[in-house]
Simulated scan of single mutants.
Amino acid sequence: MTTIATICARGGSKGLPGKNILPFAGLPLIAHSIRFALRHPAISAVYVSTDDPEIAHIAREAGAVMPYLRPAELARDDTPKLPVIEHLVAYLEAQGQTITRIVDLQPTSPLRTPEDLDGCLARADAPDAPGLVLSVFDSGSNPYFNLVEEQPDGSVSISKGGGLTARQCAPKVWALNGSIYVWRREALAHAAQHGLWSVPVAAYAMPPQRSVDIDTADDFALAEWHYARQPSGT
């Protein structure tokens, strides 16, 4: 099995400009995900897809392969991520590579640990493995208990069910944290055409303190706070 890592990083960011390359714990933010992937024995190479020459330069310096600058039609604000990954993998296959599994890492999730990726890969290697394993966390919110949605008349009501008086009685739900996605090659190709939820999906739960997704300055500060408290070597 040939497993590669992909990291998608556009140059534009409205919530926190330049977030993918802002200094984080002594390195550009994206470099943490690149180094993380390079250190894992299951991953043969790390590829970055970006439209930004500065991100490309920093990615190369960190050890990633930059096969091209992403075309403009795949770098818009509203461009879905899956066609971007599929475009990269298809390009590599056209160059003669055989790829059976893709580990996609979000560059704005620097708090994942090797154990988190090990857990995702173990689930992906199970006999009943689905097309995709993705990382999740318990956000503390639940549509059966404390999540409401607006109705046509402007009022709000519980999102699902009739409303429960105790969270412990509600079905278990998870929030996507975006940190790790482990794709089977054929599942990625299908999902790029038909959407993520068109393939069987399994979840791997990470703790909330490792699930910060950096999109704002407050997220950045919180991630730094948690990073400083991680055991050394993670």
Rank of each mutant, 00 (worst) to 15 (best):
residue 38 L to C: 08
residue 30 I to H: 02
residue 35 R to T: 09
residue 113 T to F: 06
residue 37 A to L: 15
residue 198 S to L: 09
residue 163 G to M: 02
residue 110 P to L: 10
residue 229 R to I: 00
residue 8 C to L: 15
residue 156 V to R: 15
residue 174 W to F: 12
residue 206 M to V: 06
residue 80 P to H: 04
residue 38 L to G: 05
residue 178 G to I: 06
residue 149 E to W: 14
residue 166 A to Q: 15
residue 89 V to I: 15
residue 67 P to K: 09
residue 114 P to H: 01
residue 135 S to P: 08
residue 6 T to D: 07
residue 13 S to W: 04
residue 59 A to I: 04
residue 116 D to G: 13
residue 89 V to C: 06
residue 125 D to I: 05
residue 13 S to L: 03
residue 168 Q to H: 10
residue 27 L to Y: 08
residue 52 D to M: 12
residue 179 S to I: 08
residue 127 P to S: 00
residue 163 G to E: 06
residue 78 D to A: 03
residue 14 K to S: 15
residue 209 Q to W: 14
residue 23 P to L: 02
residue 125 D to R: 12
residue 194 H to V: 02
residue 45 A to T: 06
residue 53 P to S: 00
residue 161 G to I: 09
residue 170 A to L: 15
residue 65 V to Q: 13
residue 191 A to L: 10
residue 192 A to I: 07
residue 125 D to A: 15
residue 189 A to W: 07
residue 100 T to F: 08
residue 190 H to S: 05
residue 144 Y to S: 05
residue 4 I to Y: 08
residue 35 R to N: 13
residue 74 L to H: 01
residue 91 Y to N: 12
residue 119 G to Y: 06
residue 108 T to Y: 00
residue 186 E to W: 10
residue 174 W to L: 12
residue 63 G to A: 07
residue 206 M to Y: 01
residue 27 L to Q: 14
residue 60 R to K: 15
residue 225 W to G: 00
residue 193 Q to E: 13
residue 72 A to M: 08
residue 188 L to S: 10
residue 187 A to S: 10
residue 211 S to H: 02
residue 67 P to I: 07
residue 34 I to H: 12
residue 148 V to D: 06
residue 117 L to F: 12
residue 53 P to N: 11
residue 21 I to H: 05
residue 35 R to A: 13
residue 118 D to A: 00
residue 175 A to G: 15
residue 172 K to M: 13
residue 60 R to H: 14
residue 25 A to Y: 02
residue 154 G to A: 10
residue 221 A to G: 02
residue 147 L to W: 09
residue 119 G to T: 05
residue 10 R to D: 04
residue 207 P to W: 03
residue 159 S to T: 14
residue 147 L to P: 03
residue 196 L to T: 15
residue 20 N to Y: 03
residue 12 G to D: 12
residue 131 G to A: 05
residue 99 I to F: 04
residue 171 P to K: 01
residue 174 W to G: 09
residue 84 V to R: 06
residue 49 S to A: 15
residue 188 L to H: 12
residue 142 N to I: 08
residue 18 G to C: 05
residue 172 K to N: 05
residue 163 G to K: 02
residue 142 N to H: 09
residue 204 Y to K: 02
residue 143 P to K: 02
residue 71 P to Y: 11
residue 172 K to F: 13
residue 102 I to K: 11
residue 44 S to A: 13
residue 52 D to Q: 07
residue 152 P to F: 04
residue 36 F to V: 12
residue 199 V to A: 10
residue 230 Q to T: 02
residue 63 G to R: 09
residue 50 T to V: 04
residue 189 A to N: 06
residue 49 S to W: 06
residue 134 L to A: 14
residue 127 P to W: 03
residue 36 F to Y: 14
residue 220 F to E: 03
residue 97 Q to E: 14
residue 202 A to I: 09
residue 46 V to G: 12
residue 227 Y to C: 05
residue 154 G to W: 07
residue 194 H to N: 12
residue 4 I to E: 11
residue 148 V to A: 07
residue 223 A to W: 07
residue 133 V to I: 07
residue 62 A to Y: 05
residue 145 F to S: 05
residue 151 Q to Y: 03
residue 175 A to D: 15
residue 170 A to R: 13
residue 134 L to R: 12
residue 87 H to M: 00
residue 82 L to S: 01
residue 157 S to L: 03
residue 123 R to H: 00
residue 15 G to R: 01
residue 38 L to M: 13
residue 160 K to L: 14
